[in-house]
Design a protein around this nucleic acid. Structure first.
Lengths: 201, 201
DNA sequence: ATAGAAAATCGGAGCGGTTGTACTTTTGCA
DNA sequence: TGCAAAAGTACAACCGCTCCGATTTTCTAT
């Protein structure tokens, strides 16, 4: 996935980045997100404050060390779906599988869920993929990228996890939500089963 | 709507509040949201910085001087809907009527639409009504307030305007979106036409 | 009228996230 | 070996926002 261009430089860079992320999650978990300053995180990772912000654009970003791969996986799920499967169905499966696991063991996950500022940030991060997803959906169905059916589905699908997680049974809630969306979008090309996007007329 | 309790005190308070809001919109429009500091706004309204933050919780809030009435109007639209009309239908009508007007003459509207920080803030403001709306919907249909069908509809209905506005024909996009939602939620109590919530079994 | 409570305002210090600038060190490569 | 790019450093400053003690203005009850 990620470019593994050789080089000691890149390795060291990755190391300090990791040191920052680790220190951040540890300190935030120990004493709470709001009770730890960025200067303190930099200190704990033994780098300067300037360096911290060269690696992460904001305090919140220290906790989300992934991002890029997530988006590409999402798009791939739609593009490389099983033959004959609708884009909506593929989207549903991917979202259910990747975003309903309740990993109470993952400290980062717990930290995010228990910190409103981080929950909001996570939601906004997902929303950033909205346009890319809409484009992918449009491309896969020959609909216009600004068709409300397309942009609406992109938005709602990305919002679904944040709704489902508020439920006692997130996986079930997620499926229910997508069932509703499927019924609504049933008459659109998004829900129609179809062969892989024809590369010939 | 708003309590008009007599008194010179309340009048003066409202006056300074208005002075702040006016100065803010004027300065922001003239020179851009990011190029005007809160201290400057306070200065222009001839009040102290402390006073500014006693009236508004944040810089962004200076631009949104309404809020409370909006929420009650939204809930009222659902609760006091025409007899026999479904909650979803009532919700749709209200959202379409109040949120699709493109007021290119309203400076506040233009300001908000052209400033990402303010667009985000506006979206979050609407999201804050999500729980209240979900409760109202649940009450009107005898569904559980945490039913995904309820919370999902509340979220999506409130998000719809922000999607529709990205289109060239917002009003049309808004109606299209609600049509999709109506199809999806058709099998739920939210879309079923019904008499006013029976106060008797 | 007047005292005293309550509310609004003030001034200013200060915190925490973020940015900018100029400088040093490390690393890759010719 | 030498030079350019990249990574890291140090430090000051900005900005949104909060806190606090003091002061003024308005309301209310006697």
């Amino acid at each position: 996935m990620t470019e593994t261009t050789t080089g000691r430089r890149e390795r060291k860079k990755a190391r300090t980045r990791q040191a920052l992320a680790d220190a951040a999650v540890r300190l935030f978990t120990e004493r709470g997100f709001d009770n730890v300053g960025v200067r303190e995180v930099a200190e704990a990772a033994d780098v300067s404050l300037s360096t911290l912000f060269k690696h992460f654009p904001s305090k919140e970003a220290l906790v989300f060390d992934l991002d890029a791969d997530i988006e590409s996986a999402l798009m791939a799920a739609v593009r490389d779906r099983a033959p004959g499967q609708s884009v909506l169905h593929a989207l549903r499966d991917h979202m259910v599988h990747t975003r309903t696991a309740v990993r109470t063991d993952d400290p980062t996950f717990v930290l995010v869920e228990s910190t409103p500022a981080l929950r909001d940030y996570a939601r906004r991060m997902w929303s950033r993929h909205e346009k890319t997803l809409a484009d992918t959906l449009a491309e896969a169905t020959d609909l216009a990228p600004d068709d409300p059916a397309v942009t609406g589905l992109a938005r709602f699908a990305l919002e679904a996890p944040s709704i489902a997680r508020a439920s006692d049974d997130p996986a079930r809630a997620m499926r229910d939500l997508f069932t509703l969306l499927e019924h609504g979008w049933a008459t659109t090309a998004l829900a129609r089963q179809q062969d892989r996007p024809g590369r010939e007329g």
